[in-house]
């Protein structure tokens, strides 16, 4: 009888999205008057007892390098065994969570809600609010099974820290043979993953060509932001596909989204409208994006953005 949180690690460190999942799991446990535990698969250099600060009482580890690359089948079997006593299992709804949570749901016949944006409502039944229609609406989904699985959207839940040290214990687990062999990994190093970024600076066709992307990357670098783009920009190969945000690209929910030269088609808005603050810079005052924005500048990006960059430098005491 507890909540189990799957903690996803990358390069030996706990992902930000996993801290969010830990807090979410701990607060769900509090609602159910039980405790939250966590499971970590693969070798991890980070001190896992810090998960105590996020409300986790105990961390189960299977510290084996064979688990440093994930195979959804192998991970599911291990987590299913570890979850024997858990009522609720929490994942981050990131690429790893999306590969494992559905398998675990089918294996345990545990109802699954992916893309959760709020704590479960437990006063009558067990209802989880999730993002649907690519951020254009929410659905409140009741989970009817005894065991429940929730995959929490990244950047949807605030991290709160308290004092606490989690007990870390190795889990005696048999590791099944993996069917998926990883041949190579190509990680963009030094860049902030788009799905986890607090600030995102994004460019559209208004920037006229890939040679002008310095405006976007310079501002992003200065703000510690990730870079993104609209669908046409990815389609004409000005920017890589993985930067495409929108209905058929990545849906993101950063604290601040700055759109430069993007008109704001409904499909683009669908991927970004959960952002807390939206800034739109566009020379067309009729651009639909202004209706969805919090702040806007009607003006030429090539003149406005360099001035913004200077003002941010001044703010940060860099000039």
């Amino acid at each position: 009888m507890s909540v189990l949180v799957f903690i996803d690690i990358a390069d030996g460190q706990i992902k930000k999205a996993s801290f969010e999942a830990a807090c979410y799991g701990a607060q769900t446990a509090a609602l159910l008057a039980t405790k939250a535990e966590a499971i970590v698969l693969g070798t991890c250099e980070a001190d896992l007892s810090v998960l105590g600060q996020y409300g986790i009482s105990k961390v189960h580890t299977v510290s084996d390098a064979k688990l440093n690359h994930f195979d959804s089948q192998v991970f599911t079997k291990i987590i299913a065994d570890a979850a024997a006593g858990a009522d609720v299992i929490v994942f981050s709804n990131n690429t790893t969570g999306k590969a494992i949570a559905p398998r675990l749901s089918a294996r345990l016949k545990a109802g699954l809600v992916t893309g959760a944006v709020a704590l479960p409502e437990v006063s009558a039944g067990f209802v989880v609010k999730k993002s649907v229609f690519s951020g254009k609406a929410f659905a409140n989904i009741g989970i009817n099974s005894a065991k429940k699985i929730i995959a929490l959207n990244p950047n949807a839940f605030n991290i709160t820290k308290t004092d606490g040290i989690a007990e870390v214990a190795a889990l005696n687990s048999e590791i099944p043979a993996a069917a998926v062999t990883v041949l190579s990994v190509n990680k963009v190093t030094g860049e902030i993953p788009l799905s986890e970024a607090d600030i995102v600076v994004s460019g559209g066709r208004g920037l006229k060509g890939p040679e002008n992307w310095g405006l976007v990357t310079d501002l992003a670098k200065l703000l510690g932001a990730a870079t993104a783009c609209s669908r046409p920009v990815a389609d004409i190969h000005w920017r890589p596909h993985h930067e495409h945000v929108g209905q058929t690209g990545l849906a993101i929910a950063p604290n601040l989204y700055i759109a430069i030269g993007i008109s704001g088609a409904i499909q683009h808005l669908a991927g970004v409208n959960r952002s807390k603050t939206i800034v739109v810079i566009n020379k067309d005052p009729e651009a639909p994006f202004f209706k969805a924005a919090d702040y806007g500048i009607v003006g030429d990006a090539f003149e406005v953005v360099p001035k913004i960059i200077d003002a941010v430098k001044k703010l940060k005491g860099m000039s």
């Binding site: 929410f138 659905a139 409140n140 989904i141 806007g296 500048i297 406005v304 913004i308 703010l315």
Partner: peptide, 30 residues
């Protein structure tokens, strides 16, 4: 068996409206 069911949908609250800043004064936006 169906493991889940939709209880209700909600629409996100409408935005308060955009605050426009003059293109001559981007410092104000910052």
């Amino acid at each position: 068996e169906a493991l889940t069911s939709v209880v209700a949908f909600d629409l996100p609250p409408a935005k308060a409206g955009v605050k426009l800043v003059s293109a001559d004064n981007p410092e104000e936006l910052v």
